[in-house]
Amino acid sequence: MTDPRYVAYHPDIEKPTDNEEKLFDEMANKLRANNEKAYRKHKRGLRDAHAKSHGILRGELEVLPDLPPELAQGFFATPGTYPVITRLSTTSGVIRSDQIRGVRGLGIKVIGVDPENKTLPDDHEVTQDFIMVTHREFLFPDAEAYLKKGIPLAILLANLSDTMINVLSEGLALVNKLIPLRPTLAVFVRPNTHILGDTFYSSAPLRYGDYVARMLYAPRSPEVRALAGQSAAHYPGVNALQDMVVDFFGEHDAEYELRVQLCTDLRTMPIEDATVDWSEEASPHRTVAVIRFPKQDPYTPERRAYGDDILSFNSWRCIREHRPLGSINRLKRKVYDASSQFRHSVNNAPIREPRSAADLPD
């Protein structure tokens, strides 16, 4: 029996539009053109988003014991510890200086789930992926808005130099002090902070066993909590984010919390509009797991090559109880796989999921 305080998951909770498949095909074609353009420029395949990595980490995820029934769902239903591999990135599909303001990304790959319980029929791997960004809500409500507004904006930005991007960003930051910018522009004026102190969000909803949820990842141990909001100004290089990750994990361990926010009302916490803020007062994020990273070198040449060429993250690589929901996520099902296939093909790299944390090179 489900808890009446929370919206129960059922297949009809999503409301796809009649033209979605056409939109998805159009989006895949546009992104393929971007992939091909990046390949001609760099002579290697890049991700069409999250192109630049800043560190590849090996750790473990502990599902906490004694969770209340509404939180003990899906992968989190049984206490236990699992290996994880994570990749820190910037969400742009263009390789730029880390001095450029923008959204950062986090891919979490949990190893050891039931391969017979996967969402996609051809997925028989033992991995569960969670993909998060430093922006609480997605910038566009659905696939149609993303195609009409997001892709033209991305193409425009991709054709600007780092210098021009920086000038525009600093100008927008001044404007934002007088007139608050729309969220689609505000992401470009957020000051750069230490990436290991940032909080990351799923932005769009996913199935959470019997319920529906959004998730976040937040600093837990004192060393990383101290980095929250800390200016990155004292890391001036083009690879500043990589430098700060390598410096930190050369001296410290780190712990982070994985938290879940359950949906309580589909009117105020909609599935199909990813731009709507889900109220913490109505339903706060609650901790369901702890992710721990020991001291390590997170960006050796071997790790960089593994993370950029072999490793892939896809929110649809998941068990059925954590199926992504909403228009934006249905779009990702098509375009993530197409991008990955192209990148691995032109780089002559195998598409291979890790079977253990030892698959990540030291």
Rank of each mutant, 00 (worst) to 15 (best):
I179T: 13
N159H: 14
P219C: 08
S202F: 03
I271K: 01
P294K: 10
P79Y: 05
L157W: 09
N314F: 05
A49G: 14
F293G: 09
L325C: 04
V94W: 06
M269H: 11
R47Q: 13
F249A: 10
A349Q: 13
V335C: 07
D12Y: 09
D277A: 12
F130N: 02
V290E: 02
R87A: 08
P83M: 06
N329P: 00
V94D: 10
A145E: 03
L71G: 00
K295W: 04
R259E: 05
L106G: 11
V245G: 01
M27A: 10
D362K: 08
A240E: 00
D253A: 15
H252W: 04
P205M: 00
L157Y: 12
Y39D: 13
R220W: 15
A28C: 12
V212A: 12
K22D: 03
R343G: 09
V260W: 01
F293E: 12
L331Y: 02
R136D: 01
L67F: 01
N348E: 14
V346D: 05
T193W: 08
W316P: 15
F138G: 05
A218H: 00
R182C: 05
A158N: 15
S231C: 13
D122C: 03
V187K: 05
G307C: 04
V346K: 04
D273M: 14
T264F: 02
A228Q: 06
R286G: 04
I95S: 10
N117I: 03
G250E: 14
T81E: 03
K334G: 03
R104Q: 11
S221R: 03
D162T: 13
E272G: 11
L172E: 07
L71S: 07
R190W: 04
R323S: 10
N329F: 05
R304Y: 02
L241R: 08
G150D: 04
P219A: 07
F75N: 02
K334S: 07
I108C: 03
E60F: 14
P68G: 07
S92R: 00
A173K: 11
V276G: 11
Y217N: 01
V288H: 04
T199H: 02
D277N: 12
I95Y: 09
F200C: 13
D337H: 11
V276Y: 04
E255P: 08
R317V: 06
Y208D: 02
D18Q: 13
L196T: 14
V103C: 07
N176R: 00
G209Y: 00
L241T: 15
E255Q: 14
W278Q: 02
P68A: 06
V126F: 07
I13Q: 07
L57D: 08
K148Y: 07
L61T: 08
R292E: 08
P354V: 14
N347Q: 06
E257A: 15
G105V: 09
L120D: 08
Y256R: 01
V238A: 13
M1T: 15
